[in-house]
Amino acid sequence: MTRALSWFFSFVALGAVTLLVGVFVWQSLPVWHHEGWHYITGTKWFFRQKEFGTLPMIYGTVIVALIALVLAAPLGFGAAIFTAEYLPRRVRLAVKVLIELLAGVPSVVYGLLGILLLRDWIYNLFEKFEPLSGDTLLTAGVLLAVMILPTIVTLSDDALRGVSSAQRRAARGLGLTHAETVLSIALPQAKRGLGAALLLALGRALGETIAVFLVVGRQDNNLPEHVFSLRAWLDAGQTITSKLGGSETNIAYGDHVHWGAMVGLALLLLIMTGTVTLLGTGFGKRSDA
């Protein structure tokens, strides 16, 4: 009975997940039919003209997440090295608990702070580059960096603590200083775990909706000529999530192609976050073994 129930509930859960993937594939079929590969490579999204190219949104999603990662990674690794390698155990736990608590701050609260403070800071700070407004890819990236910081700190800290203390003691016995031990023993040993921390944080950044929605500007079709143009970071943009969270989701239902295009965006997002999460957990797993 217990066994049958366990299996039954598991199958319900697995069925729901299968249904989830199935729904996105099936419901997005019309747009693949309508656009073909142009759906991914197209650079123009004008729903009134039935033109659905998602490249600028894929660009926006990736750039915003990368900005967040570039900003949060050094800070997060630094903080994790400090908690894992320098703090006594009790204090370390306290700091870690504090940071993990703050990982739970809801994204709508971050969004509110983004509207109130961050937009204006970015706008004034980068004034000489003449951003048109405070709603930029950079604003969203910075906000996301704060949001994923706890994830990076706590997972990196775990990875560093996973390095055996016997190795550390041996290194110190060989005359290495504390810093040398950290840099030449702990960090290389923990590198898979650190990589996993980055990937899982990236997954969170790619999928974050509400906070990004409120500060990214939601400007369609903004694709710079050069992919790595830094100036473009100070323009407004659109991410997959900000599009999905916006008014088009309500308008689109009922129109097969338009709705397919919206669901297709969710499918693209699912593939992106799925890949990153899978890579991340794969990475983390092997470091344990």
Partner: peptide
């Protein structure tokens, strides 16, 4: 783990459809 990484908005659209 993969399910854990699925963004909230994806669940939202899924719920809307189903």
């Amino acid at each position: 783990y993969t399910l854990n990484g699925v963004p909230g908005i994806v669940f939202g659209i899924f719920g809307f459809v189903v």
